[in-house]
Design a binder for these strands. Structure first.
Lengths: 229, 229
DNA sequence: GCAACGTTTCGATCAGGATCGAAACGTTCA
DNA sequence: TGAACGTTTCGATCCTGATCGAAACGTTGC
């Protein structure tokens, strides 16, 4: 009877080291980083980081790709990001009565990417706004884009019509760990985030996965989507 | 920037101990167990188990309830079960090339409960059968009961009409870690599992969360649902 | 109130793994 | 080919946390 519990414990042990958790958290935007950069993120020497990265690759949480003399590490699959995000939600719910928002980084709470879509106050406010206009139906477990919603997003050039070609689901809720309410994920969430980057409404910060909302972005989110933020 | 990663690491450390993982795994059927029973499950002395249980309660993974001289422990919320289930999926995907099914307990793989619904070969086959008859649409991220499906399940006395009263979602996919394909969760999955217990199609085994499929159960699943198992 | 039982607290011990210095490896570029 | 750089391997050290014996605690039932 033990085996699956053992696998669970082994996986958890892999995430349980503060340095490795920092590395995983850093890679949750889906981008790749070199071993040296990740050593800085984890706050350890390169040789220690190498040991950690080796373990993460060996257990298939990360995959590595050689780019010249350096090695680029990234999350092995989107599923890994999704599980880590879920764990963060549980982690923050934490000790009863909760002490959560206080200890959370302000920039991360404001706006960040969650693998390929938007999260944080911005992500949740965007989902709320779309819902208020009846573009979207979304609760903690399921989500659906309405016809007017599809048309509305289509007016920005996003093709979100259901299609057999795409294996990926159109619209899915993703529980936001900092806001504790769902934001928009799936193909629709990813397309919206991509649009925001392209129009310079948001910009990636040099490190970390928090993003900066530009002035034009703030205007756009408010006037075009009715976001209250 | 570090804080959320730190929370993640702390949570993972909590699950990373083999004994605690066994305890959590044991409680994933949603039922409560006494401290003494859980000590046996974890394979440690009562005082060690007490130390583990204390940590799990302190970090809000478990909640405890006093029943006379003994204390009953159970998972704090369904979200905890959901996350653990997700972690198991990632854990089993594990090392490239995979060595998964071999090390997994046969009874668990055959049929088990996943908090409140059915999982394992039985759970996945049931979802497949419902899908083949166009009662259900289900992929890895979203699920929906069709009108004929709602009517079909209604003929067993299950009231699965959408309702504002129920906060809980009707139908949701849950990735099965042993089969690596989605099975049916949400209100519909829970109702179906309850039906199966009531009609004695399946029985809980004394310990663990695997279930036994009775002879009448096997007949019922095959003839009534078209399950190939 | 006392005895019995399940459970927790305390204290000491022990082990696994994270860490870094030193050195080797492998790739790129001159 | 040799030098420079990023990265990994090796070896030794150190520290956190899991473990159990012993004892205390709290509840129930007589």
């Amino acid at each position: 009877m033990p085996t699956i519990a053992r696998e669970l414990a082994d996986l958890a042990a892999l995430i349980a080291d503060p340095g490795r958790a920092l590395i995983l958290s850093r890679l949750m935007d889906g981008r790749a980083q070199t071993a040296g950069e990740l050593a800085l993120v984890a706050g350890v020497t390169p040789q220690t980081a190498s040991w950690h990265l080796g373990r993460l690759v060996q257990h298939a949480l990360l995959k590595v790709e050689r780019r010249g003399p350096r090695r680029l590490y990234r999350l092995a699959t989107p599923l890994v990001a999704q599980i880590l995000e879920g764990m963060m939600t549980v982690a923050v719910t934490g000790p009863l009565g909760s002490r959560p928002p206080a200890r959370i980084d302000a920039a991360m709470r404001r706006a960040r990417t969650c693998y390929d879509h938007l999260a944080g106050e911005l992500g949740v406010a965007l989902a709320d706004a779309l819902r208020e206009r009846d573009y979207l139906v979304l609760d903690q477990e399921v989500g659906e884009l309405t016809e007017v919603g599809t048309a509305f997003l289509g007016s920005f050039g996003l093709d979100l019509r259901p299609s057999a070609r795409h294996r990926r689901v159109l619209c899915r809720p993703c529980l936001d760990w900092s806001e504790r309410r769902p934001h928009l994920a799936g193909r629709a969430g990813a397309a919206l985030a991509e649009l925001a980057f392209q129009r310079d409404w948001i910009r990636r910060r040099p490190q970390g996965r928090s993003v900066e909302i530009t002035d034009t972005g703030l205007d756009a989110f408010r006037s075009l989507f009715g976001v209250r933020i």
